[in-house]
Structures are given as C-alpha cells and as structure tokens.
C-alpha cells in the first residue's frame, strides 16, 4: 500500500467508518470552504459537503491517487457539485413550483382544469409510490404534508441532513419517473 491517501481509500472500501471520520476531520474544512466560496450560502455549502463525503463513502474507488491527492480530489468534487447546485437551483425552484401546482387542491378552477389536475396528481402519486420507502416517506412529509426539513427529520427520527438528502434523491428520481411533458405542462 503506497500513500496515506491510498490506505485511507482502501479502508473506506473495506467499510471502515473511522476512515471516513478521519477524512472529514482532515479534509472537511477545505471541502466546506470550497463549496462556501462558490455558493456563498452556508446551508447549501453544508449540503455539498455531505454529498461529497457520502459519495466518497459509497464510491471510494472513484478516487485514483494517480490523478492527485485525496484533498485535491475532494475539493474538485466540491467545486463541481457546488456549481451544479448553482446551475440547478433555478431549475429546481421551477420544478418545485410545478409540483405545488399539480398537487394543490382544486380551487376556483374550471371542471376541465379540475379533471386535468386530478389526473396529473394521480400520476404524481403513482410515481411517488415507486420510490424507495425512506425517500417516499420523506417526500410525502415535505411536499404533501407541508413539513419543513427540520420537522421531517423529527418525524423520521433522522438528522436534518439525512432528511434533506432523502428528499433531494426522491425529487431527482421523480424527475426521471414522470413524463417530462407532464412536468412541463402548465
């Protein structure tokens, strides 16, 4: 085994959570600083740190020390992820608005609007039912229950960051599951 980085990566592959803790202790601050620099938003930067280290934990084999140090790898990942967040934020806000529209109770709309909305809502609910249980529960609480991330976390008994990541994963999957034309309508 060569460098400290290679050993750390090998330990991560072996499922050693202490190696992950060591990686966070050693490299969490520069990863956070990188994300914060790009996003200028502490909460969003923390989400990026979480995404970067969860990805390292789930896919340690993606790090290749032949291409640079683990510090360099993680800060580059953080920068890319933060830029993705910036690019995606407008798109995501738009999509969340559309979710709200299609799941709102029919109000003063016409019978045709009501029928269309009901059909759309049924499609969304069907897609939600296809999510993994933990993600389904989180997205239902957040979007259909109207709970904040903090309240979702309290209900599910998980950290707030975990609740956020479940909702984010769920939204990403829903985006794939639902017909884009349906999302674009309205």
């Amino acid at each position: 085994m060569g460098s400290t980085d290679a050993l750390l990566a090998a330990r991560l592959e072996a499922g050693d959570d202490r190696a992950l803790a060591e990686a966070i202790d050693a490299l969490g601050a520069p990863v956070y600083a990188t994300a914060l620099h790009v996003l200028q938003d502490a909460s969003a930067a923390q989400d990026v740190v979480q995404d970067v280290f969860v990805d390292l934990w789930c896919h340690p084999g993606r790090f290749d020390e032949a291409h640079g140090s683990l510090r360099a790898y993680l800060t580059v990942c953080a920068r890319h992820r933060a830029l993705d967040v910036l690019r995606g934020s407008a798109r995501r806000a738009d999509r969340e608005l559309r979710y709200e529209r299609i799941t709102l109770l029919p109000g003063q709309s016409s019978p045709l609007d009501q029928a269309t909305a009901a059909e759309t809502a049924a499609t969304v609910h069907a897609a939600v039912r296809r999510l993994p249980p933990d993600q389904r529960e989180a997205v239902e609480l957040a979007y259909f229950g109207g709970l904040s991330y903090r309240d979702v976390a309290l209900v599910l008994g998980v950290p707030e960051g975990t609740a956020k990541s479940r909702v984010r994963l769920a939204l990403a999957k829903l985006g794939t599951l639902l017909d884009r034309r349906m999302l674009d309508q309205g």
């Binding site: 992950l20 966070i24 202790d25 740190v49 998980v158 950290p159 975990t162």
Partner: peptide, 9 residues
C-alpha cells in the same frame, strides 16, 4: 456537520 455527514453516509 461532521455527525450529520457520518449519519447520512
């Protein structure tokens, strides 16, 4: 954040 990342991982 450390605890949050470890829990999510």
């Amino acid at each position: 954040l450390r605890a949050r990342v470890l829990a999510a991982s």
